[in-house]
Design a protein around this nucleic acid. Sequence first.
DNA 1: ATGGCTTCATAGTGAAGA
Length: 258
Amino acid sequence: MRIATWNVNSLNVRLPQLIDWLANRTPDIVCLQETKCEDSKFPLEALQSTGYQITFTGQKTYNGVAILSRDPVADPVMAIPDFADEQKRVLAVTCAGVRVVCAYIPNGESVESPKYQYKLGWLRAFLNWIENERGQHEQMAVLGDFNIAPEDRDVHDPKAWKDQVLCSEPERSAFRQLQALGFEDSYRLFEQPENSFSWWDYRMNGFKRNLGLRIDHVMLSMALARRCQACTIDRGMRANERPSDHAPVVADIDLRAA
DNA sequence: ATGGCTTCATAGTGAAGA
């Protein structure tokens, strides 16, 4: 099974790239973030021509998540239970025997911002929900734009970013709490190039200079992690004309392995 | 130097992203 996450930064703008990428990479499950379209404006017909099943929850202008899958899905959840949140940031489905959670974790803006407090509160509610879901599903994957660089090696300039938003200790602690619930960072199961990132700022020639952060993650429960064969960042997508500022992250799992 | 780009939105001294 090939499972992927991509923050598209507007589904309608990225639609041609997405359709090409689906044909080239042939993922079985894709989690999308920042679709930025309300459900009535979702480009359903254009995407259905790809043959994927589509589940989505969005809003105007901001946020919005979707899951594309080859197999049918069951038991969709479109919000963190018992957590009041206007923002459409999570989507969970069961597909091919795997509980899949697509998450667009808040950015936080800066550690001084009220949005940072929203992020930390959001993460607490999210982790509670994931713990609950984890109790019901052995095979589970949490994918998305985490807006957290877990370690200094995930940051192009750790000194400049030290204690800044996306890198602060409370955010990294939340990431480790997810790991403590039994989820492996699939990218780090394998030897990877130094300075591997999944996001590069649009400004300052950030991509050409590789001034990036690794903030998009595929987290796998042990039952899946031990059968994970590879995890790669499709950084070439960031070199496209009119790219998203995020590259897709793709993991291969051999569900038939012992 | 709180800029720089990109998107969606509206006509704001834009807002938000990361």
